[in-house]
Write a protein that binds this DNA or RNA. Structure first.
Length: 224
DNA sequence: GCGACAG
DNA sequence: ATCTTGTCGC
C-alpha cells in the first residue's frame, strides 16, 4: 500500500490512479441493510481531527453501532482534495465497526468532482465498500431547482455530464446533492438517501455522525 | 489571467 | 470545517 500523499502533486497522481478503479453501478439496498454515516470535526488550534461512524438500520432507522477515531490533521483543506484531509480518521472509525456496512454515506461528493473522484468514491475504492456522497452545497456544479415535493429531483450537471442529482428530501426545503461513490447506481443512492431523510433535510446517518464527532472532539478537548 | 470551490 | 445569541417551533 502506497504511503499517504504528502504533497498536492502526489495527491493528484493518487486520484488519477484510483479513478480507474471506481464502479459507479450497483443494486438498491435490501430491507434491514446497515448504512454507515461518517463525518469529521476539527480542532484547528491543535491540528486535531476526530471522525465518527454511525451504523443505522436502513428499515427501522435505529442506531446499531457507533465508533470514533482521532488523529493529527495530515493534509490541508484544498478544494478537490478533501479526501486526503478527511479519510485517515474515517478509515480508522470504519475499521473499528464490528458489523460490515452495506453502504457508507459520506458528507461530500463522489463522482461529482472535478476529476470524478470525490471523497465518497475515494473511500469506496480504498475499502471495497459500497459508498455514496450526500453534499449540502452544489460545489461548482449547476442544476435546475427541482419541483417542491419530497422526492423530486433534477440532474446535477458539470458541463455536458450528469454527475449527480439535486434531491429534495423535504418539501419546500433546499435540496441535497447526491452522487455515486462506488458499487451503487445513482438512482439507488438517491433512493437510499431519501429513505434515510424521513424527517430532516440530511440523512439520519449524516446527522448522527456529525453530532457524534463533535461530541467526541469536545470530550477530548476537555481532558487535554 | 485570477479567484473561487465539497468540508 | 469553524467563529457564534437568541429565537421560533414541535
Amino acid at each position: 500500500m502506497p504511503a499517504w500523499p504528502a504533497t498536492e502533486a502526489d495527491a493528484l497522481a493518487e486520484q488519477h490512479r484510483l479513478r480507474a478503479l471506481v464502479d459507479p453501478t450497483g443494486p438498491a439496498l435490501s430491507d434491514g441493510a446497515l448504512v454507515a454515516g461518517v463525518d469529521v470535526a476539527y480542532d484547528e488550534e491543535r491540528d486535531l481531527v476526530v471522525a465518527a461512524a454511525v451504523l443505522v438500520d436502513f428499515t427501522s432507522l435505529e442506531t446499531v453501532e457507533e465508533t470514533t477515531a482521532a488523529g493529527q490533521v495530515s493534509f490541508p483543506y484544498v478544494p478537490g482534495l478533501l479526501a486526503f484531509r478527511e479519510l485517515p480518521p474515517v478509515l480508522d472509525a470504519l475499521a473499528a465497526l464490528r458489523h460490515r456496512p452495506d453502504l457508507v454515506l459520506c458528507d461530500g461528493y463522489g463522482l461529482a468532482h472535478p476529476r470524478r473522484l470525490g471523497l465518497a468514491s475515494h473511500l469506496g475504492v480504498l475499502t471495497g465498500l459500497r459508498t455514496a456522497g450526500v453534499a449540502k452545497t452544489p460545489f461548482t456544479f449547476t442544476y435546475d431547482h427541482p419541483a417542491p415535493a419530497r422526492g423530486d429531483w433534477s440532474p446535477l450537471v458539470d458541463g455536458a455530464e450528469v454527475v449527480g442529482r439535486a434531491l429534495r428530501t423535504q418539501a419546500g426545503v433546499k435540496p441535497v446533492f447526491v452522487s455515486v461513490g462506488h458499487r451503487i447506481g445513482l438512482a439507488e443512492a438517491s433512493d437510499a438517501t431519501l429513505a434515510l431523510a424521513r424527517k430532516y433535510r440530511l440523512p439520519e446517518t449524516t446527522r448522527r455522525a456529525d453530532s457524534l464527532c463533535r461530541r467526541a472532539l469536545a470530550e477530548r478537548q476537555l481532558s487535554q
